[in-house]
Amino acid sequence: MNVLVCVKRVPQTGGRMVLAPDGRSIDTRFLGFTISPHEECGVEEAVRVVEAHGGMSAVLTLGPAEAEDQLRDAMAIGIDRAILLETSGGEWDPVSTAAAIAEAIQVQEAANGAFDLVIFGNEAADTGDYQVGIRVAVALGRPVINGIKGLTLTDGVAHARREAGGGGWETYALPLPAVIGVKEGLNLPRYPSVPGRLRAKRKEIERVALGGSPAGALGLGAGEDAAVEGTGVGAVPGPTMVGLRLPAEERTAATVIGHGADAAPAVVDLLLQLGLVH
């Protein structure tokens, strides 16, 4: 079973975000980087599938040279191979991102054989575009389902489940090769071991230079022929980010109603006042 998982390097924000002076990115001078929790579960799942069924796991990202860190993190918990589609900074819109990933998958498969399963996060942590995995699947002509929180593979079929609106689980059966978008909760990712980290450090990363501009790299954009149904080729790119801003502040500054256990009567008074106890 060959499995590919696609991850995106994003800043590890926690406190209130600060924007860079040009207002087009987050100020990351004091931040680390990570991937979405959804994608962490995707990485863990890829490792588990190969542990259970044999085969080879790979991780792919489209991003700057520094995204190598996220690829090594994935290899540290057991991913076998890593592919970096290297950009020279700047944002790639989801249409261009999906087209580049789909093309890279085709190149990989021609050289190394098909991926039985390609795993995406349900949505990227930063842009939350909800579409890259689906676009790639459509371009490759493979079945795809998003929102997956449970997966078993038997006899060439991916049995997947996702939360149903009114509680409970919807089940899906997709013949392999297939694409799935996963959500956190799919599994509990392991922590990398020290030997795992050391091994990951020494591993080769395959690099593909994409250049700076998605439109230039892919020949996408206005004036291109209308899209061909079922392929990502010739698609109109977008949306195009113009700028970022912070939502209006809703700061309240909490009223301190007490300290330590002595605060209990004041808390219960508050609960009474809010009508939450009688």
Binding site: T13, M17, D126, T127, G238, T240, M241, G243, L244
Partner: peptide, 12 residues
């Protein structure tokens, strides 16, 4: 973006 922690102005 970021589930609403950040807003993006975009052209479509």
């Amino acid at each position: 973006r970021w589930a609403g922690s950040l807003l993006e102005d975009a052209a479509l």
